[in-house]
Simulated assay, not measured.
Amino acid sequence: MKSKKIKNISVDCVVFGYNTIEKSLNVLLIKRYLESETTSEILVDDYVLTGYHINEDETLDDTASRALKELTGLSSLYKKQFKAFGSPDRLLNDKDQIWIKNEGFNTRTVTIAYYFLIKTEAVNLHENKYNAKWFPVNDLPELGFDHEAIILEAYEDLKIKCLSEPIIFELLPHKFTINDVQDLYQSILGIEIDNRNFRRKLIHKKYIIPLDEKQVGVSKKPAQLYMFSKDVYDKMFEKNYLISI
């Protein structure tokens, strides 16, 4: 028997991905498009977050994981529930009303927002049935519903969280250089970081493990590679900032 949806409670997912080549923090969005059945007039043409209404037999985490799995094919990623959005006017935009009427949603829906951290190259966009696309977090397209506000709230939470927990390593390759870590922090925080000071602090962290390997296939002098040890981190973690910037 198919589980019934709870029509006025939904989950929306902000999927953050870091592009190591362009050094940009991105958000994965899906196309929202609707034409008039009688005139072929374009009624809705924008982007939104991935979200679902909750099924009666699901937890909030279950729904968030289901949304991520269907969007990316991935599971078991870092996720955080960060806020509920329930303003009475959050779905009252004209385009949103047209979309809701077409989809049969409840116009007074409360959504629970999550964000996920993922490597951009882990998602195959060429075979994505939702027309998903990565957008830089600081250069978003036109968005439906209140999804711009949700993304910006998630981004602010990520900025705070990345200074107190080692979540940035969810966005980096398993093996990385010190410059890779610095580039990612700069991308998230939107600041310039002193290179020598940052390097000195990072390499003295016991959970940043130097490898007997260097970069390959680079035109300049290859840099030392490192890896993050969650086991070491968990043993010594005492609610201090991961890196003082």
Rank of each mutant, 00 (worst) to 15 (best):
residue 124 N to W: 01
residue 212 D to Q: 05
residue 152 L to T: 00
residue 201 K to H: 09
residue 120 T to S: 13
residue 159 K to P: 12
residue 121 E to L: 09
residue 122 A to P: 10
residue 121 E to R: 14
residue 143 L to T: 03
residue 137 V to A: 00
residue 105 F to R: 14
residue 214 K to C: 08
residue 167 I to H: 15
residue 213 E to R: 08
residue 128 N to C: 06
residue 170 E to R: 07
residue 128 N to P: 07
residue 187 S to A: 02
residue 190 G to S: 03
residue 171 L to G: 09
residue 172 L to S: 04
residue 217 G to E: 09
residue 126 H to A: 13
residue 222 P to W: 06
residue 139 D to G: 06
residue 168 I to H: 01
residue 169 F to S: 03
residue 214 K to D: 14
residue 171 L to Y: 08
residue 109 T to W: 11
residue 216 V to T: 07
residue 106 N to A: 12
residue 172 L to K: 03
residue 150 I to C: 13
residue 206 K to I: 15
residue 197 N to Y: 08
residue 221 K to W: 11
residue 116 F to T: 08
residue 160 I to C: 07
residue 133 K to G: 07
residue 215 Q to V: 02
residue 183 D to N: 10
residue 176 F to P: 01
residue 165 E to F: 04
residue 216 V to Y: 09
residue 118 I to W: 09
residue 145 F to K: 14
residue 120 T to F: 01
residue 108 R to W: 07
residue 182 Q to V: 05
residue 192 E to I: 05
residue 136 P to N: 05
residue 161 K to V: 06
residue 199 R to V: 01
residue 118 I to Y: 04
residue 159 K to W: 04
residue 95 K to R: 06
residue 169 F to K: 03
residue 204 H to L: 13
residue 223 A to F: 04
residue 216 V to E: 14
residue 222 P to K: 04
residue 168 I to G: 00
residue 221 K to D: 10
residue 101 K to E: 05
residue 116 F to Y: 14
residue 147 H to D: 11
residue 108 R to E: 15
residue 191 I to G: 13
residue 133 K to A: 09
residue 117 L to M: 07
residue 165 E to T: 11
residue 171 L to I: 10
residue 189 L to M: 09
residue 161 K to S: 08
residue 221 K to P: 08
residue 180 D to Y: 01
residue 205 K to S: 15
residue 204 H to K: 07
